[in-house]
Nucleic acid binder design. Structure first.
Lengths: 231, 231
DNA sequence: TTTGCAATGTCATTTTGATGTCACTTGAGT
DNA sequence: ACTCAAGTGACATCAAAATGACATTGCAAA
């Protein structure tokens, strides 16, 4: 999943980031609400993990602004004390869950899994589009009776394409959302990624599942769409 | 979207222009208010991005004159300092939003998206006229139960025609607004563009959606619309 | 720690495809 | 029929994308 972690104390932020990353998530970790807002305006997240106390804008305020921006991802608040008042305030602001600090990493991971399961795109551990099926547990794609294993990145790209099967994803969007903040590639890494994923898929016998839309991006190839070549 | 960027310092103007372009916008980038005014008199923009400090006429003055010209596109000001006085002055002059320099490109792109969504023509991600529907996410046109994908330029032309379905667009207007300032074609590229778009649309089975008005330009031909020019 | 291997990023080069240009044809208006 | 605007076919161009070769990273087994 793509997570946005907002926590001002590096001594708490970094271990969380590392733990979440090791659990297979992409984590953009930032120290304040302002930076967080800049990021969610240009990227999409599956879940926000937000410290209650932040310098500048508070976690509550951040949460409220996130909802005002019509963003739908669940928000998990990290609170210092487990008081009813805090909880109520957080839920009022649009938070979906909270966790008392100091954070138990295992519990955090469990909550992340739980909130992630709310995501409307995954049915159980599988995401199905036409004859294609993506399996979260085994990181494989199935096509009819065949299957291949994907590398982590390839899997993320495939998931992104399958979540909105008709959409044309611009290269800029993909680069922002398939790499963590600050580690975006500076070369044609995306081209290579698409290339490698296509190779994997072609071994399944399903030919051109990923279509290039020249100058605009990539999308899944679905039947029912007249081909864009008429010359 | 069609953007007009007014910034005198090339070292700031060019990177912004490139970033905005990569995000899929058409960007006319000019160094001063006078050039900007010359452009907005003959072209229409979806959004102006204006540096506060400009040689000659200031950004505020530019903004005021733009409003006096009864132009409706939102104006995004780039200010050097985040002072209340500046902000108030800018908003008084008709600016819709402001951004503190040095410009965070990601944030600029987000603001551009946000302001662009105000456009009254798009309902969600779709623009609908009669049986025709243009889909922003998938870059397709739908007609009844069929759809075709369009190339980038074809999509822009189609959007332009559908935003004002009754209007006759002169070739000059289309050439000015479908190409960036300084890169207008020198041949019959517009004819070719119309030709290709018509071919795509004809595969939908809806006949002559784009009508030539000889000597005057082009317009949409809608079934429910009385053809006023027919003799 | 070292070694090996798979995943991924970078550079250089080729290929592709949208779009522009030229040349000519068609057709509308007079 | 004449004239000029628009349509159309063939082709050129150039940026975007694909690809090959290779470097680097990171993890895992020895």
């Amino acid at each position: 999943m793509r997570l946005l972690l907002v926590e001002d104390d590096p001594a708490q932020r970094l271990p969380l980031q590392i733990a979440l990353r090791q659990a297979g998530h992409m984590v953009d970790a930032v120290p304040d609400a302002e930076t967080a807002e800049g990021l969610w305006l240009s990227k999409d997240y599956d879940l926000l993990i937000v410290d209650w106390m932040l310098p500048g804008r508070s976690g509550i305020e951040l949460c409220r602004r996130y909802r005002q921006a019509s963003k739908g991802a669940p928000v998990l608040m990290l609170t210092a004390k487990d008081t009813t008042a805090d909880t109520v305030a957080g839920l009022d602001a649009g938070a979906d869950d909270y966790l008392v600090k100091p954070v138990d990493v295992l519990e955090l991971l469990a909550r992340v899994r739980a909130l992630g399961r709310r995501s409307p795109y995954w049915l159980g551990d599988c995401l199905t589009v036409g004859d294609l099926q993506l399996d979260l547990m085994t990181l494989t794609v199935h096509y009819r009776d065949q299957q291949v294993m994907l590398a982590a990145q390839e899997f993320r790209l495939m998931e992104m394409l399958m979540r909105q099967p008709q959409r044309v994803f611009s290269r800029e969007y993909l680069e922002a959302n398939l790499w963590e903040w600050g580690s975006e590639p500076e070369s044609n890494a995306l081209s290579r990624l698409v290339y490698r994923l296509r190779q994997r898929l072609s071994s399944l016998g399903c030919g051109d599942v990923i279509t290039t839309v020249h100058g605009l991006g990539y999308r899944l190839h679905l039947s029912g769409l007249t081909d864009a070549s008429a010359g």
